[in-house]
Write a protein that binds this DNA or RNA. Structure first.
Length: 858
RNA sequence: GCGAGAGUGGCGGAACUGGUAGACGCGCUGGACUUAGGAUCCAGUGGGAUUUCCUGUAGGGGUUCGACUCCCCUCUCUCGCACCA
């Protein structure tokens, strides 16, 4: 009987489906184990990057089920953003049809991979029912002031008809259209007030022991809480007050000018009609074209321009000039800073460049600074000087006193500031939940009444060739009447960021058919929080932070009873591959490249760095080729064996052959010896055994112990698989040995083989179930309990102890396991080789490590 | 630039709290079987000397009886940086 993966995989997939194996069980007598995996991409192309991610989730789900946990293992849906629209345009199919087809294709592919996905619980985020509840939640947030509308400035590419993130702007141009200059556009956008929850989210970072520290650190830094003060600087000749945020109010007496961010709306107002107006506006325009992180980088020249206006330092009552500067960020603090050139390096460079005043207000403990001769800012601690009533105090101790002084004068107050900004959710895309707001000339922004929800996307419409949203051009969609005054009105044509949808899909999975509200509290209470969440490390900040925020909002609305969505988090590393690019056709799929040339135009391609596999960069590998060649079990096993999950992996299919060979070896192990092992019971530790047979018995139980530990505690599938490989090697070695095999021997072999099959079953479910069947058992392994090791099987009689002299390994001695440290020490000292290395020199120290190692220092 | 990770043979990786560096697999070399190819099996495989010695975990320094592991500096790569999702 030969191993025929394709045939047996088809057979078992059908059997599993027939038995309803992956239907969610809500038998509450079992421990729950709610497992999710992030974001399958229904873009018609599942690549190796995804396969690895889903396989990790699937193996954990199968393992937990065998351990008696109640598993819910659905998968989220990625958004149907630009790629969906582009593909719809390319294929000339309607997005809805296209999405439907791709979901079907993806399901088929998941089934082929043997994933225990719960098919009854699919939720596509384009589902009108999902829209209904998401819109309801949005309106509730609007009512409570957690959703609001604000005018913002954004990078806009005419050719894409869309907004660009800072990193998508290269040299002032769009990354897709490198010839197209990005323009700055004013836009009304909707925001969710994540900052209202910043403190809670930050505080709970300490209460998530099941999360990786790296992710929590990134989130804490992202929130970036700092304490400081808002200080009010009245303007000269204008009835305005400039507010600045600072964490260094101790240096206020040295503030000799103010700087505004170029984006700041007050800039335009204050220069109106002044001789400086033209120069200032020109500077603002050219600065905004730069990337914000290039603009604010240390190596970038600090540049600015005088606005012609002055304001008053509230403590010194001096008139100080106002500048616009490139290094000031509009999004942080108030968008304007007070500049203290003597104690901030950026301000120092700026002041020297434009000949502005400096005043030392902090002296180091042992010297007095002179602003005329300083060559750099003094940024360390010291004693205040030139600071009126605060002279002589240590600067850090004066922080609170200065704020109180400002408060008493009405010139400022204490505050905390966050780096975190509110979450802008408006998108000018077709595919996303419509924002349920109607604009009326008389009544303003009016929420869509609850009974009119959901607002759904029109299906019959003309797509835009450039990929922009068609909604603003579809009168049938935007023309409506005002719910209040019944006059004619216009619907919001922006849709929500698809991160909104992915912020609560895991809750909805617990009750996908519930139609009396967003969530069925009873069911959600049972399943939430998610015990084990698995997703790529790229989501460490945005998705995982948004989900935590949304969970808190839902709890405050009493849709939920948990504060945190995910108890345990595994962030797996990216699967990377080099990119290939042609100057005319952009990024290319691997099959669009032949012999280093583009198949469309035969131009030479350029090869980029190895980066994460993604649709947009086209550096993807189709798993189907490997599946056709070796079967899915081999593919599953190979991508788990290649590296530990949290590490990123440079993709290469060299070595897939090895996994296939191993599965063949296991297959032959069972099939070739089935007659001998079928007649005997598996060994249970009763009969006395010795020698090689005993060590095989020990190896079996060591393997169970190691594989269980690797999967359960560490998700180390690669070492778990390696352990089973070692066991298989030892079984084969024993079978090839001269030793005579009686019934007891065969029963020990049987136990070893059966253990290997069961331990492998989460990783390679098809072949394992088939072998289990050949071994004479009915049913599937998923319904059997995970094996336990027997403690007494692990006992050893002899131990190998390493002997070092001065930290270098010089000998190995075998000692009885019962030896004490003293006995091991004298054993080591009497070893012939060790005597030679000691060479009669006096012993300085002897270190004995419990049953493992002796280090002799001479 | 900022934040978070990572760097170990020809390759993927192992070494769990400091204690035999290179488990397991790929590749390679030699052998067995075979008309031949494939498959399979056996042996070897960090580098250098060539007899049990020296050297080696990105580079440099430190702590320690002992460092891939801890500390400091440098380099390289990956992820994220808020409208790709």
């Amino acid at each position: 009987m030969k191993y025929n993966p394709q045939k047996l995989e088809t057979k078992w997939q059908a059997l599993w489906e027939e038995q309803g194996l992956f239907k969610v069980s809500e038998d509450q007598s079992k421990d729950k184990y709610y497992l999710l995996e992030m974001f399958p991409y229904p873009s018609g192309r599942i690549h190796m990057g995804h396969v690895r991610n889903y396989t990790i989730g699937d193996v954990v789900a199968r393992y937990k089920r065998m351990c008696g946990k109640n598993v819910l293992h659905p998968m989220g849906w990625d958004a149907f953003g630009m790629p969906a629209e582009n593909a719809a345009i390319e294929n000339n199919t309607h997005p809805a049809q296209w999405t439907h087809d791709n979901i079907q294709a993806m399901k088929a592919q998941f089934k082929r991979m043997g994933f225990s996905y719960d098919w009854n619980r699919e939720i596509a985020t384009c589902d009108p029912e999902y829209y209904r509840w998401e819109q309801l939640i949005f309106l509730k947030m609007y009512e409570k002031g957690l959703a609001y509308r604000k005018r913002t400035l954004v990078n806009w590419c005419e050719k894409c008809q869309s907004v660009l993130a800072n990193e998508q702007v290269e040299n002032g141009c769009c990354w897709r259209h490198t010839d197209n200059e990005v323009t700055i556009k004013e836009m009304d956008s909707w925001f969710l007030k994540i900052t209202a929850y910043a403190d809670e989210i930050l505080e709970y970072c300490e209460k998530l022991p099941g999360w990786p520290d790296s992710v929590l650190t990134m989130q804490k830094n992202w929130i970036g809480k700092s304490y400081g003060a808002i200080i009010r600087f009245p303007m000269v000749d204008l009835d305005e007050v400039v507010e600045v945020f600072t964490t260094r109010q101790d240096t206020l007496f040295g503030a000799t000018f103010l700087c505004f961010a170029p984006e700041h709306p007050m800039v335009k107002e204050m220069v109106k009609g002044l001789p400086q107006e033209k120069e200032v506006l020109g500077f603002v325009e050219s600065t905004l074209k730069m990337d914000s992180f290039v603009r604010t980088a240390e190596f970038t020249n600090k540049e600015g321009v005088f606005t012609g206006r002055y304001c008053v330092n509230p403590v010194t009552e001096e008139k100080i000039p106002i500048y616009v500067a490139n290094f000031v960020l509009y999004d942080y603090g108030t968008g304007a800073i007070m500049a203290v050139p003597t104690h901030d390096q950026r301000d120092f460079e700026f002041a020297r460049k434009y000949g502005l005043a400096l005043r030392v207000v902090i002296n180091p403990p042992d010297q007095e600074l002179d602003e005329k001769t300083m060559t750099e800012a003094y940024v360390d601690e010291g004693v205040l000087t030139n600071s009126g009533p605060f002279n002589g105090q240590r600067n850090l101790e004066a922080l609170d006193g200065i704020v109180e002084y400002l408060e008493s004068k009405g010139s400022g107050h204490k505050t905390t500031n966050y780096r975190l900004r509110d979450w802008g959710i408006s998108r000018q895309r077709y595919w996303g939940t419509p924002i349920p707001i109607i604009y009326c000339d008389k009544c303003g922004a009016v929420p869509v009444p609850e009974e009119d929800l959901p607002v759904i996307l029109p299906l019959d419409l003309n797509l835009k060739p450039n990929g922009g949203s068609p909604l603003p051009f579809e009168a049938s969609f935007y023309e409506t009447t005002c719910p209040r005054c019944k006059g004619s009105a216009r619907r919001e044509t922006d849709t929500m960021d698809t991160f909104v949808e992915s912020s609560w899909y895991f809750d909805r999975y617990a009750c996908p058919d519930y139609n009396e509200g967003p969530l069925d509290l009873k069911k959600v209470d049972y399943w939430m929080p998610v015990d084990q969440y698995i997703g790529g490390i790229e989501h460490a900040i945005l998705h995982l932070l948004y989900s935590r925020f949304y969970t808190r909002v839902l709890k405050d609305f009493s849709y939920l009873n948990v504060k945190e969505p995910f108890s345990n988090l595994l962030t797996q590393g990216m699967v990377c591959k080099e990119t290939q690019r042609c100057s005319t056709h952009g990024y290319l799929y691997p099959n669009e490249v032949k012999g280093g040339r583009c198949v469309h135009c035969h131009d030479e391609i350029t090869t980029g760095n190895s980066v994460k596999m993604s649709k947009s960069k086209k550096n993807v590998v189709d798993p189907q080729d490997l599946i056709d060649r070796y079967g899915t079990d081999t593919v599953r096993m190979f991508c788990l064996f290649a590296s530990p999950p949290e590490k990123s992996l440079e993709w290469s299919d060299q070595g897939a052959e090895g996994s296939y060979r191993f599965l063949n070896r296991v297959w032959r192990l069972v099939v070739d010896h089935i007659d001998d092992i079928k007649g005997v019971p598996a060994y249970r530790g009763k009969e006395t055994i010795s020698g090689q047979l005993k060590s095989l018995y020990r190896k079996t139980h060591q393997t169970i112990k190691k594989a269980t530990d690797d999967i359960d505690n560490r998700f180390r599938f690669n070492t778990a698989i390696a352990a089973v490989m070692e066991l298989v090697n030892e079984i084969n070695q024993y079978l090839n040995s001269e030793e005579e095999k009686d019934n007891i021997a065969w029963s020990v072999i049987k136990e070893a083989i059966e253990s290997a099959v069961v331990l492998l079953s989460p990783v390679v479910p098809h072949i394992s179930d088939e072998l289990w069947h050949i071994l004479g058992y009915d049913g599937v392994l998923l319904k059997r309990p995970w094996p336990c090791y027997r403690e007494e099987a692990l006992e050893v009689e002899k131990r190998l102890v390493v002997v070092q002299v001065n930290g270098k390994v010089r000998s190995r001695i075998e000692v009885p396991a019962s030896y004490t440290e003293k006995e091991i020490e004298s054993g080591a000292l009497s070893d012939e080789r060790i005597q030679r290395f000691i060479g009669g020199k006096p012993l300085r120290k002897v270190i004995v490590v419990k049953k493992k190692l002796v280090n002799i220092v001479v």
